[in-house]
Amino acid sequence: MKKHLIAPAFLALASGIGSTSVSAANLTLYCSAQEEWCQLMARGFEDATGVDVAMTRKSSGETFAQVKAEEANPKGDVWWGGTGDPHLQAAEEDLTEPYVSPMREQLHPWSIAQAESAGDKTIGIYSGALGYGYNTDLLAAEGLPEPACWKDLLKPEFKGHVQMANPNSSGTAYTTLATMAQLFGEDEGFEYMKGLHANINQYTKSGSAPIKAAGLGETTIGIVFMHDAVAQAVAGFPVKVVAPCEGTGYEIGSMSIIKGARNIDEAKQFYDWALSAEAQNLALQVDAFQVPSNMSAETSDKAPDLSSIKLIDYDFKTYGSSDTRKRLLEKWDNEVSVLPQ
């Protein structure tokens, strides 16, 4: 008896799965920003154009792995958001399609410079400066001085108080390593990393984990992108954001069209739309504190003011290439990570 009841219910359930939707105008969007922002971009594009958007959100590393695995039979059309390195890597491995958008003249020069360095296969949609944040409660409780510069983090009283991600696993931490190499020169940069190593309490796996730990009071200082630290403060955690006085590097959140996209026209349509001021202003609604790449788009008033931050002239071509990355990571593995703490 039981069987007869179960079987139809089972079929009814089964009939829903196993389908990939196909209709008139479609776009499959791989999104690597935060969930709300991705949702808003997908719905915003639907409202603006009537194209159906199927959006999947994954971190940029995961999306890269997926795009690479799907190389022979691509399922996605556009990859929007996420730090620039995996986008550059995808460009280098020829997983993405070159496209020169008519919207380019409205963009900041840093965005176009990055696109040109990648043979037009990717383009900057926002940028965020590297910095660090500290837990104000913990800092006060431990009676530590307020840090303001990169070099402050080397002070012996910060021993065991600093957290950063492992550059082998996190793009954020690799940006930190590359920034130090450019800011202080490679030799001195590595000396800095060695000094920092002595004060590090943990190399986390994921890039934004250090500031989350700082928010929860599990570390005093976390080295992250400043917009992540701002998000933590806005969420209500006792976190203060620091733009280091020596100057700092930055990431460029990017967008690429996947090579072999099934809906190439819609992909280009999305690409152009995503570069418009109107689309980039959507960031204001979702607590995204990056700086948009369209010059006339607005930046959140809580976002770190890029004009007051000394930005280095980050060389994406050199430091985004897999050769340099491999060399720097190996050097870090052999010279820094093995030192006693």
Binding site: I17, S19, T20, S21, T28, L29, Q34, E35, E36, V53, A54, M55, T56, R57, K58, S59, E62, A65, Q66, A69, K75, S208, K212, G215, A231, Q232, A235, F237
Partner: peptide, 23 residues
């Protein structure tokens, strides 16, 4: 699951991880 979810078939855990990443 992280690699297998798609726009139409999103799973609870990948939604939850997304929330955690977003504080």
């Amino acid at each position: 699951v992280i690699f297998l979810v798609s726009a139409k078939y999103d799973m609870a855990t990948s939604y939850i991880i997304g929330r955690v990443e977003n504080n």
